[in-house]
């Protein structure tokens, strides 16, 4: 069951690369949050209520509902539709995405042979998501897309942390969640400021400071 969810998570990368509408990207992020939530639920093997409550809060409430809703509000208010002229054409970026996806499986295959007690498929897919989001940051131009890519990067890292059974102390988990939340919030605030101060919402407007 968890394998199916992981494959779905992996294919969500392909969808993000292919889709050019920002709204579709945000909905994919919400879907990723939901898949992460299901993975967490399937994986529960301890009965620590506090931990479970926290994980549900992080995946279902924050990642699936609150942040995507917040981001949707932002793009609707600013009437942002599509990604503008990405650096690489749709076809090539889709090809690259498939290569990243395959690379993830290679990594999964490879880790399966080491004796580290890592869940191979979790590890592979999470690495694929992390690489894909870094790649998107480099190629996409809209400022809002950069925020979404950051969110996707965080989803990848969350999955990576699921691939290790070692648990972080509660204090750390809380801190990480707080940082993520405040980080997204701050990025959106700055995004709105940029919208009102500059004409475009393109990263190319941000080239005033240089040597």
């Amino acid at each position: 069951m968890s394998d199916v969810l992981l494959i779905l998570l992996g294919t969500s990368i392909l969808y993000v690369f292919a889709a050019s509408r920002i709204e579709a990207f945000i909905k994919t992020l919400a879907l990723q949050g939901l898949l992460l939530f299901l993975l967490v639920v399937i994986d529960i093997h301890e009965i620590n209520l506090l931990n479970i409550a926290f994980l549900i809060l992080e995946t279902l409430i924050i990642k699936t509902i609150v942040i995507p809703y917040f981001l949707l509000q932002v793009i609707r208010r600013n009437e942002i539709g599509r990604e503008i002229e990405p650096n690489i054409s749709q076809l090539y970026s889709l090809l690259l995405a498939s290569m990243i996806f395959i690379f993830g499986f290679v990594i999964a295959y490879w880790t399966a042979h080491t004796e580290q007690g890592i869940k191979p498929l979790y590890f592979g897919v999470s690495i694929a998501i992390i690489i894909a989001s870094l790649f998107l940051i480099v190629t996409r131009k809209r400022i809002i897309t950069h925020i979404l890519c950051y969110m996707m990067l965080e989803n990848g890292i969350f999955l990576l942390s699921l691939s290790v059974a070692n648990e972080m102390p509660m204090l750390v988990n809380l801190g990480v969640l707080l940082d993520l939340f405040v980080g997204i919030f701050l990025l959106v605030i700055f995004f709105n400021k940029i919208q009102s101060m500059y004409d475009g919402n393109h990263i190319d407007v941000l080239t005033q400071l240089k040597d």
């Binding site: 580290q116 890592i118 992390i130 870094l134 940051i137 400022i143 950069h146 950051y150 990067l153 965080e154 890292i157 990576l160 942390s161 691939s163 290790v164 070692n166 990480v176 980080g183 701050l186 990025l187 700055f190 400021k193 940029i194 101060m197 941000l206 005033q208 400071l209």
Partner: peptide, 29 residues
Amino acid sequence: SSLEAAWKYVYICSVGIALAFVGIIILSM
């Protein structure tokens, strides 16, 4: 200009720090 600086600062540092967290998870593996 300060808005541009702040945006670059938050974004670059957040992504960088996120990679450090990847490192920490790898260390725990």
